[in-house]
């Protein structure tokens, strides 16, 4: 398989990248890790006229932990998984990231790329929702920050404007009484999520004082589960509470069906995996 021909640019700064985006408009696609874009191009599913390769922009790479956790959009899964500091303050990231693709995909694939691509079965969107991450983007008018919950708008669609570049993802480190987990039902061939659920729990003593859930793989886009979250609040996070609350998962969502999992089955699995993610998050929050 061979991609169609394209014009290639490799900017070395964010400003240069944004200028190129402005110049080429819809014709252009950003190339980061390339593990979604290049296969799509080889299969003829995408044929951008211009590729803007941002991998030479050093400032987009790396993890900074000072109060918040700031992860450059070009930071690879492998770099996230191996980052000592992240293992301490946000262990769920490593847990989730190590389930992505394979060793080679993790060496190339980037957090920012996955979020900007917004594949409905990608793992990272669920994490950003559950962890209430902020997504920093730069455009011709400067920079702005988008809450994860507002970022994913539809299948393969985000709140990014065509002339904007996703530059960083900001997480809040977890402290005592907080726990998060990611569990997924992997696609047997790609290990994308057929259903993936990220859960965050904060305990106030023995009671749940905050809960966020991000579900991926099930619908056109990753989504929070407000009903489940509400049901968890004030409860003790025990098995019965989890079982009851997770029954609300996926309700009201447009669930997808395909050859790997029908709509009915996915709907049921959203509940099961929500329960399992919550159970793990609660256990971690209890310490």
């Amino acid at each position: 398989m061979i991609p169609s021909a394209f014009e290639y640019h490799a900017p070395t700064s964010v400003a240069e990248a944004i200028s190129l985006l402005g110049q080429h408009g819809d014709e252009a696609k950003i190339l980061a890790g390339g593990h979604s874009l290049l296969p799509a191009m080889k299969l003829g599913l995408a044929a951008p006229g211009v590729l803007i390769d941002i991998t030479k922009i050093a400032e987009l790479r790396g993890v900074v932990i000072n109060g918040n956790v700031n992860i450059g959009s070009l930071t690879t899964w492998a770099a996230i998984a191996q980052h000592e500091g992240l293992r301490r303050v946000l262990p769920v990231l490593g847990e989730a990231v190590s389930q992505i693709g394979d060793l080679q995909v993790r060496n190339r694939g980037t957090l920012g790329g996955a979020l900007a691509h917004a594949d409905p079965a990608a793992d990272a969107p669920a994490l950003t929702l559950a962890l209430d991450a902020a997504i920093r983007v730069h455009g011709p008018k400067g920079e702005r920050t988008i809450a994860a919950v507002d970022f994913f708008t539809d299948m393969l669609s985000t709140a990014l404007e065509p002339d904007e570049l996703l530059t960083a993802i900001i997480f809040r480190p977890l402290g005592a009484g907080e726990g998060a987990a990611y569990v997924k039902f992997p696609h047997p061939a790609t290990r994308y999520a057929i259903v993936g659920v990220a859960a965050y729990i904060k305990l106030n003593g023995t009671h749940v004082s905050a809960c966020r859930i991000g579900v991926t793989g099930a619908g056109a886009k990753a989504e929070r589960q407000n009903d489940v979250e509400q049901a968890m609040l004030g409860g003790d996070g025990g098995d019965e509470a989890l079982a009851t609350a997770s029954l609300r998962a996926g309700e009201g969502m447009d669930i997808l069906g395909d050859i790997h999992a029908s709509e009915d089955y996915r709907r049921a699995m959203v509940k099961v995996y929500t329960k399992r993610a919550l159970a793990a998050a609660v256990a971690r929050a209890r310490g």
Binding site: P39, L43, H187, P188, A189, T190, I259, H260
Partner: peptide, 19 residues
Amino acid sequence: VYNEDGQLLTGTLMDYAVP
């Protein structure tokens, strides 16, 4: 897997799950 129209839905190793 083919659909009723004869399109091969497991057309690459992204859908055909070789272990």
